[in-house]
């Protein structure tokens, strides 16, 4: 009942014999996991497998999504059953090496100004300390290179960005912060998130952007897509109002 079910693939198609694994989610979902922890190849595999599921459009499958290293599928219990769907998933998983999949097409690099520390990032020092760095070193590390949108989730249009160096493998807090605002930059387990709505969170709030990631009034309501890259640039503390006034939060995109 609780066991993962690893799929036996040819060794050259699965670097870890425990993955991919198929598990059930709730009463009408499946999760195909490609790794246990965040992993570049597994992330690509999850994105590519979701694209494949969309192309297959099996009857009864209602939606597909990815998280960091897995692909989720929800189906109609009235139209199909777990056994037949699992068999189809195994067959599709065996059809190619998903870990070698390319990144999605149409990727963009976004340069995103952010304000770090003080009132706009009250947990910068705490997070930096957990990572063994000074706040200054932490900001330098975070702005050093582009981070990839590994998945969109939690809240609408909200990116999980990674991957930070290993010392940033810091846990979430045991108690939730009651509220961090839209555009907040938060950190945990080698990842950064920009929040698309104000929300309670267990992640540590280290900075603030002017991004509006979810714009329901537009034809394409979601600013970022999985595979996009985000390079944070350090903005002065008083820049936030100006950034927030810009429709794209001061962010500039170029094709990759």
């Amino acid at each position: 009942m609780f066991a993962d079910t690893p799929i036996t693939l040819r060794p050259d198609m699965a670097p870890d014999s425990r993955f991919p694994a198929i598990r059930t989610v709730g009463i009408d979902g499946f999760l195909v996991s490609f790794a246990e922890v965040q992993d570049e190849r597994a992330n690509r595999a999850a994105l590519a497998f979701r694209s494949a599921l969309e192309r297959e459009s099996w009857p009864g499958v209602e939606e597909c999504a990815t998280s960091l290293v897995s692909t989720f599928l929800r189906f109609d219990l009235g139209a199909c059953d777990h056994a037949s769907l699992r068999a189809r998933l195994v067959q599709l998983l065996s059809s190619r090496n998903w870990f070698d999949a390319p990144l999605p097409e149409g990727r963009r690099l976004w340069r995103v100004p952010a304000v770090f520390g003080s009132d706009n990032g009250p947990q910068l020092t705490e997070a930096a300390t957990l990572a063994g760095q000074t706040p200054e070193e932490a900001v330098t590390t975070i702005c050093a290179q582009p981070l990839r949108v590994q998945t969109i989730g939690f809240a609408p249009g909200q990116p999980y960005l990674g991957q930070l160096p290993p010392e940033w493998d810091i846990p979430r807090q045991a108690k939730l912060s009651p509220h961090v605002p839209e555009g907040a930059l938060v950190v945990a387990i080698r990842q950064l998130i920009v929040f698309s709505v104000g929300t309670p969170t267990g992640w540590r709030h280290i900075g603030q952007t002017g991004l509006r990631l979810f714009r329901p009034e537009l034809d394409d309501p979601f600013l970022l897509r999985p595979g996009d890259e985000v390079l944070f640039t350090r903005a002065p503390e008083d820049a936030l109002d100006r950034l927030r006034a810009d429709p794209d939060g001061g962010a500039v995109a170029e094709a990759l």
């Binding site: 709730g26 009463i27 965040q38 998280s67 960091l68 929800r74 846990p171 387990i189």
Partner: peptide, 12 residues
């Protein structure tokens, strides 16, 4: 506190 963020469904 350190597990990977994963898909959630209502009822979880």
């Amino acid at each position: 506190l350190s597990i990977l963020s994963e898909t959630i469904v209502p009822g979880d």
